[in-house]
Design a protein around this nucleic acid. Structure first.
Lengths: 141, 141
DNA sequence: GTGTTTGCAAAGTGTTTGCAATTTA
DNA sequence: TAAATTGCAAACACTTTGCAAACAC
């Protein structure tokens, strides 16, 4: 989604999310959303931004990732490495996770279906269901 | 499982796992396994141990939780709060997670079934599938 | 006795925060 | 110009580590 976004489209993207299109947010949005679905950590994005000559601080990376997530432009993936992973794909889908490299790969929503959802405890609703398929290196065949 | 474990049973439990039954490990094992299924963070267990008058350091709590996990006595639950959660139930099951309180609740393995598993990327096998059902407070009825 | 385990304090990692300077509308 | 945003550095929370003393076998 948002492949080939132009500058103006990205501005609309942010404004629609209620975020001022500042230089940093625009630059980061273009890195994140220009190239299709991605999974990044704060550090990944920081390195990528600096590599691209974008002047931005790590604190702003964190702020921006959380603001984008709150605005529904990103989703956080619950992997239990120390770091937070953010996913540019906010549609219904799940994840493979390879712990050694820390690689996250999308699984299309249709590829995993639950037969029935468990009844939540009284007083609670189901917010969403996350399926993480943990991978390990295949045994020699 | 391991309800009502006696001292000697706990020693066997550790020895079977290849761990020397030291005073600290025994005390922690009894806290963890005497009372049925539990979900604890390192800090939880540390406070509980100190409250019970068990002399143990936080570093040892961390060591022990990881050793127990490596030995298959515990499982880590992939929730993305900053902390690590350890589960004394190592059988096939899944979890509810309530982010505001940080509460983890077991879902029996049979209550959630996947219709089919996605094919892992080449060179990888599926290690295990984790289903986290995120809860939010119910809207006023 | 020998190798393992423990505890402490220090270091490490990832993330958040306070606040002055800057930018946006 | 008023309000929002940024960057820096310091603070933070959680976890790991190095090493000497204590312990298990």
């Amino acid at each position: 989604m948002l492949r080939m976004a132009t500058f103006c489209e990205e501005i609309q993207h942010l404004k629609a999310a209620g975020l001022r299109p500042t230089r940093q947010r625009l630059s980061l949005a273009r890195l994140l959303f220009a190239e299709g679905d991605r999974h990044v950590t704060a550090e990944d994005l920081y390195q990528e931004a600096r590599g691209a000559g974008i002047q931005v601080s790590l604190a702003t990376i964190y702020n921006t990732l959380h603001q984008f997530t709150a605005a529904g432009l990103l989703r956080e993936v619950p992997v239990d490495t120390g770091q937070s992973y953010f996913d540019t794909n906010t549609t219904h889908h799940h994840h493979f996770f390879e712990p050694e490299q820390g690689v996250v790969i999308d699984i299309p929503g249709e590829a995993v279906e639950l037969n029935e959802l468990p009844t939540p405890p009284a007083g609670y609703d189901i917010d969403r269901v996350e399926v993480i398929v943990r991978l390990r290196r295949a045994a020699r065949p």
